[in-house]
């Protein structure tokens, strides 16, 4: 599985959404499961999967599906 696929899979698992609900316009609070509690669960899952430690600033700025991809790249995850 590519890192991009793993990234998508984490969104699907953490938010318990179907793959057709996953799209590039997903953002914080755009779907019910992506609230503040869901956000921290997403961060924890990404950290585990890619073996990284996200800085709080990056966690706060991780506002959308797309900005998250940029964040992963910043931490050396090849997307």
């Amino acid at each position: 599985m590519s890192n991009k696929q793993k990234y998508d899979e984490i969104f699907i698992e953490v938010f318990e959404i179907s793959s057709d609900q996953l799209n590039e316009s997903l953002e914080y609070q755009s779907i019910e499961p992506w609230d503040s509690v869901g956000h921290m669960a997403l961060m924890a899952a990404l950290e585990d999967e890619f073996d990284i430690m996200l800085e709080m600033d990056d966690i706060i700025d991780f506002g959308t599906y797309l900005t998250g991809i940029e964040t992963m790249k910043k931490y050396g995850v090849d997307m």
Binding site: E32, P33, D35, S36, V37, A41
Partner: peptide, 11 residues
């Protein structure tokens, strides 16, 4: 259930 509660759905 989620229609009727306000706690985070992750719970």
């Amino acid at each position: 259930i989620l229609e009727n509660v306000t706690f985070p759905s992750r719970g």
